[in-house]
């Protein structure tokens, strides 16, 4: 097991290095210049000498491989550098937003789980009945509906609905407060994006639960249990569900990793100051330093999630370790 763990861990490095190379050079191909937009943002004339100065300041005048080496060296010295746009340390900028994104991801996961598990089970047990069709319908609708559109509808619905019923339009807060400072404020802001993304997420997980459970229900030992005359409920709870849970956990953890970096559009709709919006803004402002560190963070989360899932599998199924 230890050997497998180390082997699997060593595989992470080429992936991370590859991601670093890809993101660094991809961003360098983007036309334009952070200095130009900073100095001439609203159409005023920017002196070429000043632009040169700014580029020098940011180290953009150095040869590209030197810049790449500095980028990598930053990981050795644990110095992620500074934002080219605000000049603040990147660790500071990211830590400001990490909390919010993490909370939304956790809340979405929670929403997804409480919907997906019961729906998935009922859908599998009642396979090919109208209940199954409705659940599958609901699930596929969740995957089909763009979550930003759902978000727009939610905000509008709240504004119009509250005005209709209470006379005053209400909308979720647009400023973030940590949950320990003001739990009511915090939840009333984040519950909506959590629902908007959690629905999609739950749809994926519902389908997974259903098909995983269907698989297991066809296994020999379940048939044996049935033949033994065990009550269906006992079969499902005691035998089938436990075994079906593994792929469900997989999809939930991978979706979770996806949410940590992929809330790009939802954060726009709800004005959430999270990692996804930071990504869009730093790409828009050509803040290479910030963009590449953000992407690396997201990739790292993703890769680690996959790693843990693999370890989990290997731990549960010794065959994988030796294959």
């Amino acid at each position: 097991m230890i050997k497998y763990l180390i082997k699997r861990l060593m595989l992470l490095f080429p992936t991370l290095l590859g991601a670093a190379i890809l993101v660094f050079f991809l961003l360098r191909l983007v036309p334009g210049d952070v200095c130009e937009i900073r100095l001439a943002g609203t159409g005023l004339y920017a002196d070429p000498a000043e632009i040169e100065l700014c580029r020098k300041d940011l180290g953009l005048d150095q040869p590209i491989f030197v810049q790449f080496f500095q980028f990598l060296w930053g990981y050795v010295t644990l110095d992620l550098g500074k934002s080219m746009w605000t000049g603040a340390p990147i660790t500071h900028e990211i830590s400001l937003r990490f909390h919010l994104t993490l909370q939304v991801a956790l809340m979405s996961t929670f929403v997804a789980i409480i919907i997906a598990i019961p729906f998935g089970i009922i859908s599998a047990v009642k396979q090919n009945t109208w209940i199954d069709y409705i659940v599958r319908w609901f699930a596929i609708a969740g995957i089909a509906m763009p979550s930003f559109w759902l978000g727009i509808l939610i905000i509008l619905g709240l504004l119009i609905g509250t005005q209709e019923f209470f006379g005053e339009p209400w909308m979720p807060p647009i400023q973030f407060k940590p949950i320990w400072e003001d739990p009511v404020w915090n939840i009333s802001q984040l519950i909506w994006p959590a629902v908007a993304t959690g629905y999609r997420y739950s749809a994926v997980a519902t389908r997974m639960t259903r098909s995983a459970l269907l698989e297991v229900l066809r296994e020999d030992y379940v048939r044996t249990a049935r033949a033994k005359g065990l009550v269906e409920k006992v079969i499902i709870n005691r035998h089938a569900l436990k075994n079906a849970l593994l792929p469900v956990v997989t999809i939930i953890s991978i979706e979770f990793a996806f949410l940590m970096g992929g809330l790009v559009v939802t954060e726009q709709v709800f004005n959430l100051n999270g990692l996804g919006r930071l990504f869009v803004e730093s790409v828009g402002a050509q803040d290479f330093n910030m963009t590449q560190q953000l992407v690396m963070l997201v990739v790292l989360i993703f890769v680690m999630m996959n790693f843990f899932v693999d370890i989990l599998y290997a731990w549960l199924d010794p065959r994988i370790r030796y294959s």
């Binding site: 595989l11 080429p14 992936t15 991370l16 590859g18 991601a19 890809l22 993101v23 991809l26 961003l27 191909l29 983007v30 990793a257 996806f258 970096g261 992929g262 790009v264 559009v265 990504f279 869009v280 790409v283 963009t291 992407v295 997201v298 990739v299 993703f302 890769v303 996959n306």
Partner: peptide
Amino acid sequence: DVIMAFPLIILALAVVAT
């Protein structure tokens, strides 16, 4: 491995930016 480590939308946005 490398390409699949990127969330879809992040990679797509980076490519469009380029």
